[in-house]
Amino acid sequence: MAQLYWADEGGLPPDDRGLAYGDGLFETIRIDDGRAPMLAYHLDRMVSDARRLGITIGRSELDGVVRQALARYSGPEATARCVFKLILTRGSGGRGYRPGPGMLPNLLVSHSPSPPLPAEEGVKVDFSRIPLTVNPLFSGIKSLNRLEQVMASRELQGDLFEVLMANPAGHIVEGTRTNLFVEMDDGWVTPPTDSLAVAGVMRRFVLERLRNAGEAAMEQPVLPEDLLGGRCRGVYLTNSVLGVVPVRSLAGQDLPVAGRLATICAPNTTTE
């Protein structure tokens, strides 16, 4: 059983290992009219990824905490459109990297307004100058170690919505806060799961929807020329808070915007 903390009551203790070493992970959960459309996916990922880090948490426990948060922040304004953030750490105590025996996890819950939705006609995106290095042991985990994304986010100026990050091999992997889908002549392409810093829950949802709709959806490396070349029929970014976002301009080049992915995936479908 995790020690539960609420951000509006003071937050985590100062000896928390998430604060000291980034020893933990987090989820950001969109709330619409008192419901969490992607909740099942978020709980699946947090339990699975916590297990990979050796942190024990039960799915029913997390579900109960979200229900507590819904009750705590209930009301027409508070839960109309907001975001819950769950930060799960290995716990408190111990000096140095080595965790102490018998530690209980800490779970911090916070609540904030939802960010504005991007324009339906698409967003402006560029390539980041910050390389993204993914340790295979931690690939896909939404861990507290997000320094590369923080540095890349500093490149977001003016009306630039996102920057796409490449790995040392030159493959475009993901945005600072989004996953990537490309519609090509022969189907849909998204970077492989094991290459990702974060395997988003919306990415999982979109892949399921595409395959259920009979669309060809492949996980394979993506190069800059795949996005800017003649075979590209559209570039989309996915994020569980913002949904499916079409890209209208990449590195100063206009891209086709058909909006087909949002139509196929109906991202507002409830999956609780």
Rank of each mutant, 00 (worst) to 15 (best):
G10E: 11
V163A: 02
I172C: 03
D194W: 02
P37T: 09
P118L: 11
E121P: 04
M103R: 09
L43S: 08
L43C: 09
Q157V: 15
I264F: 05
R35L: 08
A7T: 01
L39M: 12
Y73P: 04
P76W: 11
L25Q: 05
G175V: 11
L86T: 10
G10W: 05
A152R: 00
L25F: 08
G234S: 03
T133M: 12
P37C: 04
L147H: 04
L107M: 05
E148D: 15
G234N: 04
Y97M: 12
A69D: 06
V244N: 02
F161K: 02
P99E: 12
D194C: 06
L207R: 11
V173P: 01
E155P: 00
E155Y: 00
T133K: 13
A217D: 09
L137W: 13
L43N: 06
L43G: 06
A2N: 05
N212Y: 00
A266M: 09
L108S: 00
V241Y: 00
A251P: 06
Y41L: 15
G100A: 15
L108Y: 03
D185M: 01
E215I: 00
R51M: 11
R45E: 04
N145Q: 14
N135Y: 06
A50I: 07
S249T: 14
L255C: 07
V247R: 00
S153T: 06
T193L: 13
G11C: 01
R231I: 01
E61S: 07
G158L: 04
V201N: 02
G158Y: 01
G230F: 00
T178R: 02
V257E: 08
L62A: 12
T89Q: 10
L164Y: 01
G93F: 11
S48H: 14
A251Y: 00
G54P: 05
A217K: 02
K85D: 10
L108P: 02
N106L: 02
A217T: 08
L242G: 08
T178N: 08
N268G: 14
P37M: 04
R248H: 12
E183F: 05
L196S: 04
V134K: 07
